[in-house]
Amino acid sequence: MFRRISRITLPVVAGGLAFGLFPFRKSQFNPSQMSHNEEIAQSIRNTDLYKRLTDDPEFSKMDTDKQFPQQHLRNYVSSGLLFGKDLFETKPVIFFNKTSGEFFAFHHIGKKLVSDDGKIHNGITATLLDEGLCAAGFPFLPSRKGVTAKLSINFENQVTPNSIVAVKANVVEHKGRKVVINGSLESLDNNPTTIATANCILVEPKWFRYFSWFQFI
């Protein structure tokens, strides 16, 4: 009897403690306290790609805060967890073509987001690709919510900090609860460079439909 109770009770108690103590419940994320760097934002607006997308009627400029569920914004790295001086100092600037599934997100990567060699950390590259490709795929899912089922990345180059980069993504397949997106992360500085290419499979689990009223991601 004791062994049966232990098998059931201990995992439940441990899970409850883990949920209660896990750091994300103490997030310091507060959009109202974020400082936007207008100088960096202007440098992004000065890029040729930004100007081209602004003039293209097939692309709409999107608000990052409306692209993701509010609860998910707490863990959205580039405008939440790593938003700050010498990190990400502007929210991503997004352009989206809903017809073709083409997506662009502009970022400025600060000097603190580096690895030991002084170049932009591959973890930052992977995160920007994951967030960008998922953002491109969300609108094609039935509930506009999903999870990354697979993310394949080919790291090609590294760039120095204080670089303006763009995530370029394109939805290549969408059917039911599955979306396939290809993309890349590219530097937009004087010598444009492909930093990495990626393929993402985004899915909406079946049980999501039972919680359509609840913003859980």
Rank of each mutant, 00 (worst) to 15 (best):
F155K: 01
A169D: 05
G80S: 10
I94K: 04
Q158Y: 10
A135S: 15
R7Y: 15
D63H: 07
K85L: 08
F29L: 13
D189F: 06
P161M: 00
K145Y: 14
K98R: 13
R45E: 14
D63G: 05
S6A: 12
N46Q: 14
A166R: 03
S212C: 00
F29W: 07
F29P: 06
T160G: 03
E89T: 15
V13N: 07
P69E: 07
F68N: 02
K175Q: 14
V165L: 14
F59D: 00
S27C: 02
F83D: 03
R25A: 07
R177N: 04
F96W: 12
P11G: 01
L87D: 03
E156H: 05
N157S: 15
R25M: 01
A18S: 03
S143I: 02
A14G: 14
E173M: 05
V159I: 03
S115V: 04
P31D: 08
F216W: 10
L87I: 04
D63P: 04
V13D: 13
Q158N: 11
A149C: 12
N157D: 14
K206V: 00
C134E: 11
G146T: 01
A18D: 01
Q42N: 09
K61I: 11
V172P: 10
G123I: 11
K51W: 13
N199A: 07
P161Q: 00
L53A: 09
M34L: 09
T127E: 03
K150E: 11
R25W: 04
K66N: 13
E89L: 12
S212I: 02
P57A: 02
R177H: 11
G146D: 00
